[in-house]
């Protein structure tokens, strides 16, 4: 047995291991033996920290809350009637009236407002810059070519339409301002759509605004 095979064996549930071959390898390989020792220590640690089952009263209270919420809700959603929510994890569509979600949307709206305010402050500054550029004012020293200015400046001359209820990420990605409709973001490969959102924010050269 090679070291990589031994590692693979050690990662398997103990019932599925080839114990004889593994023991033989561990007797000869100090590094793998140390790894195995740590793996066993880790298993003991995991077992020692297993959660105790909550008391019955906790479960009863929890179930009462769940049933109370279910009783006050509308009919069970179907795929046809499901509202699109870009941030919804599996089953989130059903939680339209949930207070934590509402709170997070309020938070998003607040972020959006701040972002919009910042974007609004940018617009006159950029317009001023472009207007003065039209009057053949010297460009900044680091950029002697007008093409470069064109490539690096976001083109804010076009209006961005935001429909009521749309959740948008507005960002500049190099030469153009991009409007990403978050409602159209699909969770890919079971990944959390929040990751898609954060990736979009992180990959933008300039994050302008997010709005609801």
């Amino acid at each position: 047995m090679r070291c990589d095979e031994a590692m693979r064996e050690l990662n398997l549930p103990s019932d599925d291991r080839d114990d004889r071959a593994l023991a033989h390898h561990l007797a000869e390989c100090e590094a793998c033996a140390r790894w195995a020792e740590h793996a066993a220590g880790f298993s003991r640690l995991w077992d020692a920290t297993r959660p105790l089952d909550p008391p019955t009263e906790s479960w009863d209270r929890l179930w009462s809350s769940v049933t109370a919420r279910l009783d006050h809700s509308g009919p069970v959603t179907t795929p046809d009637s499901r509202p699109e929510n870009p941030f919804a994890s599996v089953g989130d569509a059903a939680l339209q009236h949930s207070s934590p979600i509402t709170r997070s949307w309020r938070g998003l709206a607040a972020i959006g407002l701040v972002g919009l305010a910042q974007a609004a402050a940018l617009v006159p500054a950029v317009n001023l810059y472009w207007n003065t550029s039209d009057k053949n004012v010297q460009p900044p020293r680091f950029s002697t070519s007008p093409d470069v200015v064109q490539r690096t400046a976001p083109s804010l001359d076009s209006e961005i339409d935001v429909e009521w209820g749309q959740v948008l990420l507005i960002r500049s990605d190099g030469p153009k301002v991009e409007k990403i409709d978050l409602a159209l973001l699909e969770a890919s490969n079971g990944e959390d759509p929040w990751y898609d959102l954060f990736n979009s924010v992180e990959s933008a050269s300039t994050f302008l605004a997010m709005t609801e």
């Binding site: 906790s58 929890l62 279910l70 069970v76 959603t77 599996v90 089953g91 569509a93 939680l95 934590p100």
Partner: peptide
Amino acid sequence: LDVVQEALIKAFLGLGD
């Protein structure tokens, strides 16, 4: 426990999904 509660509500309300 709070997460289990929220998850159960999501699951039962979202059974159509």
